[in-house]
Amino acid sequence: MGKQMLNVEHVSMKFCLSRERVDTLKEYVLKKLKGEIRYNEFWALRDVSFTADKGDRVGILGLNGAGKSTLLKVVAGVFKPTEGTVTRRGKIVPLLELGAGFEIQYTGAENIYLYGSMLGYSKPFIREKYDEIVAFSELEDFIDVPVKNYSSGMKSRLGFSIATAVCPEILILDEVLSVGDAKFRKKSEKKIIDMFEKEVTVLFVSHNVEEVLRICNKAVLLDHGRVLASGNVQEVADIYMEMTGEK
């Protein structure tokens, strides 16, 4: 048992989906006056609790719409939970939607600095790692080209290379083991597996039970935002496979 790195306590996340989209002030005032604004309350997460210690690799399983990605975004700090708290220790690197969030008018090189600074890297650190990032992304010939001219594969390669330049304490993976072509996929998998050996705490979302079984030692099964089961990966995976009818 290592040090506790991540503690998710009774986290609930509520979304208000208005039935019709109210986008303008006039609409809002009119509908408010008529009492026509009704919201569909939707709880994406309900009272979710789990912990992860140093070196734990937690798989998050669940059907589509179970709240897996929402949970990752709450842990990453992008969403603030409606209720409950998330306590994290150390540096978090979220590998969510790689390649989104670049400034498309910027060149690749400029984006390394901008994106790196958003991930909390310091300037000397980025300078030091710059060559490594470029080399890993294999974009040497395109690094001075604006990112708007990049293909989606190139963008995600650059995103992956920047995000993994640092060895994080907590790594958040949302099925990103499918970056770029087969060759790059192999390379990125190797980089992530190297990180595992450094006792990184990993949160891993996947629909692929075999992958989860291979990578993780713990798992959490979500269903409609609630925790159905959590604990040892094999037990949780068995329940999940029963649910999906694979067994």
């Binding site: 990453a76 700090g77 979220p94 989104a100 958003m118």
Partner: peptide, 9 residues
């Protein structure tokens, strides 16, 4: 928005 949706700052 694309950045806000991705990374917390």
């Amino acid at each position: 928005a694309p950045m806000i949706k991705k990374v917390y700052i």
